[in-house]
């Protein structure tokens, strides 16, 4: 059996700055070994641990869709030692990866219905993976109406500008981008993600909501979704939490009897409501 603590060596292909303050970057990684690439089978919503030996390891949602030719995107906000080191990686350099980890979004449940993707800040990364997956031409027909709501604190902190631009031009996706505070040049929505959701007109009966963002955003989004009529059974929340091992051993991501790293990070709201009110 494979030692679950040994990372797969990955090669940095690209290192892009996402936000104007340089605080968030997206790394694109490739598999130097074909065997590793072949074995890496994931669904949107799953995450992986990226590491630099001697510096540390941290979990990140996979920001790219499974259908992207063996390249993986990870969006990283610089907050500490590990993320600073990851930010400093240059193309061609090596980084360790353990994954895919976690359960991911319930893809089979999503097919056939409408989707509402609501994400805030850099928690949007796995929703971006999901959006790219469902909007891929070959997959699009398997899903109904698709609505994407993305919020950031300010226009400069918006991520994935290319994607947003593309989705904004597409007819088969409804996109709402909102910022907490605009600047002089911002002409889009202002307000929080729940604010933007309130204005939506959706067919709640057909819709499955997928939510990912910081705890405060999730806290405020859940009642709004309920107000829209989206059932807790059809609401899936991806939790951001502190994880270490990623394999259900180290104990820190326990919520009630669940481990976020193995039982999540995506939880059905109906299940989450039976869990202790931590991490919400």
């Amino acid at each position: 059996m494979r030692n679950p603590f040994v990372p797969i060596p990955m090669t940095v292909e690209r290192n892009r700055v996402e936000t104007v303050d340089g605080g968030i970057r997206t790394l694109t990684l490739s598999f130097p070994a074909d065997a590793d690439r072949g074995a890496f089978d994931f669904v949107p919503g799953q995450f992986a641990e990226l590491s630099i030996l001697g510096v540390g390891e941290a979990p990140f949602g996979i920001a790219s869709s499974p259908a992207e030719g063996g390249l993986l995107d990870f969006t990283i906000s610089r907050v500490g030692r590990v993320t600073t080191a990851l930010h400093h990686l240059e193309p061609g350099e090596s980084v360790g990866l353990r994954g895919p980890l976690g359960n991911g979004y319930p893809m089979s449940e999503l097919e056939g219905g409408d989707l509402l993707l609501a994400g805030g800040g850099f928690g949007f990364s796995t929703l971006r993976a999901l959006a790219r997956f469902v909007l891929k031409q070959s997959n699009r027909s398997r899903f109904g109406d698709i609505t994407v709501v993305f919020g950031a604190r300010s226009p400069g902190l918006l991520l994935y500008r290319d994607d947003l631009e593309e989705w904004g031009e597409r007819r088969d996706v409804r996109l709402a981008v909102t910022v907490d505070r605009g600047d002089g040049s911002w002409t889009g929505l202002t307000g929080t993600v729940p604010d933007a959701l309130r204005r939506l007109d959706i067919d709640a009966g057909r819709t499955t909501a997928l939510v990912c963002g910081p705890p405060a955003m999730i806290r405020h989004t859940i009642p709004v979704l309920a107000g829209l009529g989206v059932a807790p059974e059809r609401t899936h929340v991806s939790l951001e939490m502190k994880m270490k091992c990623g394999i259900g051993k180290c104990g820190r991501c326990s919520i009630g009897g669940r481990y976020v790293c193995t039982d999540g990070p995506v939880f059905r709201l109906a299940d989450l409501e039976n869990l202790p009110g931590e991490f919400r």
């Binding site: 700055v17 303050d21 340089g22 930010h87 400093h88």
Partner: peptide, 8 residues
């Protein structure tokens, strides 16, 4: 020049 946390 902008600094923006670039690699040293």
């Amino acid at each position: 020049k902008p600094f923006g946390g670039s690699r040293p």
